[in-house]
Design a protein around this nucleic acid. Sequence first.
DNA 1: CTTTCTGCAAAAGCTTTGCACTCAA
DNA 2: TTGAGTGCAAAGCTTTTGCAGAAAG
Lengths: 149, 149
Amino acid sequence: MKKSQALLKAEAILTRYLEEAERRLTPERFAILDKAFELRAHFGVNELLEAMEKSGYHVSRATVYNTVEILCACGILRRHLLETRHASYELARENHIHLVCSVCGSIEEVNDPEIEEKLLGIGINGFTPGYFSATVHGLCVSCMERSRK
Amino acid sequence: MKKSQALLKAEAILTRYLEEAERRLTPERFAILDKAFELRAHFGVNELLEAMEKSGYHVSRATVYNTVEILCACGILRRHLLETRHASYELARENHIHLVCSVCGSIEEVNDPEIEEKLLGIGINGFTPGYFSATVHGLCVSCMERSRK
DNA sequence: CTTTCTGCAAAAGCTTTGCACTCAA
DNA sequence: TTGAGTGCAAAGCTTTTGCAGAAAG
């Protein structure tokens, strides 16, 4: 599979980040980055690990946690806490709002440039915004209809 | 300690919710509600449990989880996932935005009526908004200064 | 009385940690 | 050569679950 422009760019970012921080460029770190680009939206550490395993590249759970942390630190991934039990990650391509149904737990994504801009403009008390994670809790259509009965 | 107006109102809401859902009005549920009002902002299940214990009212962990769920369902509490390891709860008095420092993990709260209004107005695909949980990740002043060195 | 709720303890899951070995620099 | 990184397994925490006994309705 040919590498996308975006992936090549991310690899460059990771390389520079590691070099500047004087940390090592291990094959595992790049393999995990590649796999994250395949999975694309909303994956957990477990899914990432399973996907690696499935494609025949074995890495330890600890390494995945370690790497995912690094990928967040250099802005390639973003961590969202949408569910109680585990963190989920996604590529930092765009900012969007998550709509989570309180009943069935389904997750939708919505874009709203205006809200996005305002959230990232927040600078109270000298705080420097990086990215946001906005979740609106409520009822999805099907659960709303079901509750009407 | 005299009960505040807000607490009395919350007790009424809980009472009505339980009656309508045909669930039981147990002393534990009201004791936990009272304690949640004492703690006020950002507490976890563990803190709630410890606070109960400290004031001599023993309840099991399972009951706290159960009750906190109910309090969220009837809109008295809101659950926020701000940290990896545990959920935190707060009274649903107002909507605000959390500013979380990616380095030290400190949490600030900010109010912005405009963003709030927009988030609660989201109605894509028939989704019915209840409340939002918006977190801006970035650097707090002290961590920003420290990183400049 | 019946059925839900509580308490207790065990189980389940995600995340972190410690240590020996490996390997990037 | 050497210290950071990996793998593995155990430990740590929060959350969930199962079941017997308590108690609300």
